[in-house]
Simulated scan of single mutants.
Amino acid sequence: MDRKIVCARLAQQVTRLVKQEKMTPIPGITLFYSESGSVRKPVMYKPAIVIVFQGKKTGYFGKSVIQYDASKYLMLTVPVPFECETFATPELPLAGLSLGVDVLQLQDLLIDIGDDDGFHPPPLTHGIHSALLTEEMLCATERLLDAMAHPCDARVLGPHIVREILYHVLQGPCGGALLSLVSRQTQFSQIARALRRIEHHFTDSLSVDQLAAEANMSVSAFHHNFKAVTSTSPLQYLKSYRLHQARMMMLQEGMKAGVAALKVGYESPSQFSREFKRFFGVTPGEEMTRMRYTG
């Protein structure tokens, strides 16, 4: 199989599906397409497997630099803040898909694998990983894109192909990270639960002491393990999560900065504006103007 030819064909399929707006959605799958790159900026993705067929992205996670393109996929097992730079042009657009990691589907898959002697992935403790995009994954994603062009295929075949892709990831070098996510007694899974707590209650007055107690850890152990997974401290994570949520409210719902600030738990709009500019490099108003200008 010629990887370049296959990836070019898959990029064309993504382009066609996105531009024609005739694709049939498959639960957990999001297609992305862009003809312009973006400078390095803070992002936060939900747990997902990100496959790029054309163009390139570079992620900056703590001291690690992670490339993901037509040769490597990105996998996030928890929502982690990191910085990302995108490379794309009208002649060579960015095209790919994101497959959301569903914990229940993952547990069901692990039950089917059972005690297979060949399945012993080493545990991984970071929340973000990159690995080689295999031939098996490329073949499965091609069939997935084909299915999205036909409503019946998408409904009947789509979920099975998604499961197949998840299986290949589980059997690969990132399998240990997925396994750690659902293994209840690991430190990673305890931090993952704390992250889900933040995700669902980020507007509450959450304290590190409270989160550590719920994770059944001492405060020092919680800090250490939290940073191992997310590359940041619990308080800094909570702040960045609130800022990302406020930004999405402003951009997607047209919410004013002061209202968004209150919605995500800030008591002072001026403090929100200061922290927003420190984090994103622009004021909330400048970000809204920039997004309107870039479309």
Score class of each variant (00 low, 15 high):
1 M>V: 07
1 M>R: 10
2 D>R: 05
3 R>M: 13
3 R>W: 06
5 I>G: 07
9 R>D: 02
12 Q>H: 08
19 K>C: 09
20 Q>G: 13
22 K>G: 11
23 M>E: 06
24 T>A: 06
25 P>W: 11
26 I>G: 05
28 G>T: 05
30 T>E: 13
31 L>I: 04
34 S>M: 06
35 E>D: 07
36 S>Q: 12
37 G>L: 04
40 R>Y: 03
51 I>M: 12
51 I>R: 05
52 V>M: 08
56 K>D: 03
58 T>W: 01
60 Y>S: 05
69 D>S: 12
70 A>M: 01
70 A>C: 10
71 S>A: 06
72 K>E: 01
73 Y>A: 15
75 M>K: 11
76 L>F: 02
76 L>C: 12
77 T>H: 03
77 T>E: 07
80 V>H: 04
82 F>C: 06
87 F>R: 14
88 A>G: 14
92 L>R: 09
95 A>P: 03
97 L>N: 10
98 S>H: 00
99 L>C: 09
104 L>F: 09
110 L>P: 02
111 I>N: 04
111 I>L: 11
112 D>V: 03
112 D>P: 00
113 I>V: 14
119 F>E: 06
121 P>Q: 09
121 P>S: 13
121 P>H: 07
124 L>F: 00
126 H>W: 05
130 S>Q: 02
131 A>G: 13
133 L>H: 03
133 L>T: 13
133 L>Y: 02
134 T>K: 04
134 T>S: 15
140 A>V: 09
142 E>G: 15
144 L>I: 15
146 D>F: 04
148 M>S: 08
150 H>I: 10
151 P>H: 11
154 A>L: 03
157 L>V: 06
163 R>Y: 10
163 R>M: 05
163 R>A: 05
165 I>H: 11
167 Y>V: 03
169 V>R: 06
171 Q>L: 15
172 G>H: 04
172 G>Q: 08
173 P>W: 08
173 P>S: 14
173 P>R: 10
176 G>A: 12
180 S>V: 00
183 S>C: 04
189 S>P: 08
194 A>E: 03
196 R>I: 13
201 H>A: 06
207 S>H: 05
208 V>M: 07
209 D>I: 09
212 A>G: 06
213 A>E: 15
213 A>Q: 15
218 S>N: 04
222 F>W: 03
222 F>Q: 04
222 F>K: 02
223 H>R: 13
224 H>N: 10
225 N>P: 00
225 N>L: 01
225 N>Y: 07
225 N>W: 11
226 F>C: 11
231 S>G: 06
234 P>D: 03
234 P>H: 02
235 L>D: 03
238 L>D: 04
239 K>M: 12
240 S>I: 06
240 S>D: 11
242 R>H: 12
247 R>L: 12
259 V>Y: 00
259 V>G: 01
261 A>Y: 00
262 L>P: 01
263 K>F: 01
264 V>K: 01
268 S>N: 07
269 P>T: 05
276 F>C: 01
276 F>Y: 12
277 K>P: 07
279 F>H: 10
279 F>I: 10
281 G>K: 04
283 T>G: 06
284 P>S: 05
287 E>V: 10
292 R>V: 08
293 Y>H: 13
295 G>L: 14
